[in-house]
């Protein structure tokens, strides 16, 4: 038992074996230790969703998860969505539909949308609204975000 802890995890396909202070959140670890600043910090109470990442296939608010809790996990952040260095279908759809305005909430929106499409390739608008309800957008680009998710589903799903 210690206030530092050895962490062995995979982030965006890359394995890391590092020691972290146990009082650092997964968000701190991603942003400060790995420099993955695409994951954003806003409310730090799990309400805004700006810090959303995917851990073992499920979205979490990384501000509410200690880094040590991700030991042995597979983490995907917005930086891990690209395929061969190019935006994936979902990211392209966000671009094409003007979904990203100021852009600050967009990494979180993308992670929630990605997780939705992983488990439900044919979502309806209300499924998108439910899946993304934990991601606040003050530009309130919800309509264009929803359209992008539905369009990406069309493109990707068989």
């Amino acid at each position: 038992m210690s206030d530092r802890f050895p962490l062995d995890l995979t982030v965006n396909g890359q394995r890391y074996q590092v020691e972290v202070p146990v009082y650092h959140t997964l968000l701190d670890f991603l942003r400060d230790d790995l420099g993955l600043t695409g994951t954003k910090e806003c409310c730090v109470v799990g309400e805004c969703g700006a810090c959303t990442v995917i851990v073992d296939g499920r979205t979490v608010n990384s501000c509410l998860m200690l880094a040590v809790e991700a030991d042995g996990c597979e983490v995907i952040t917005v930086e891990g969505l690209a395929v061969d260095g190019k935006p994936n279908a979902l990211q392209r759809a966000f671009l094409e539909h003007g979904s990203a305005q100021c852009g600050f909430c967009i990494p979180g929106q993308l992670m929630s949308a990605q997780a939705l499409l992983m488990e439900n390739p044919h979502p309806k608008a209300e499924d998108v609204h439910e899946a993304l309800a934990g991601n606040l957008c003050r530009c309130a680009g919800y309509e264009q975000i929803t359209e992008a998710v539905l369009a990406a589903a069309e493109e990707v799903a068989p």
Binding site: R31, G35, L36, T37, G38, F94, L95, A100
Partner: peptide, 23 residues
């Protein structure tokens, strides 16, 4: 025309640097 946003790609890949991202 509804051309794609300048800076849009950075916004959907996480590359966009906001003030709090600077070190």
């Amino acid at each position: 025309a509804s051309v794609a946003r300048v800076g849009g790609e950075a916004r959907v890949t996480g590359a966009q640097e906001y003030t709090a991202d600077l070190k």
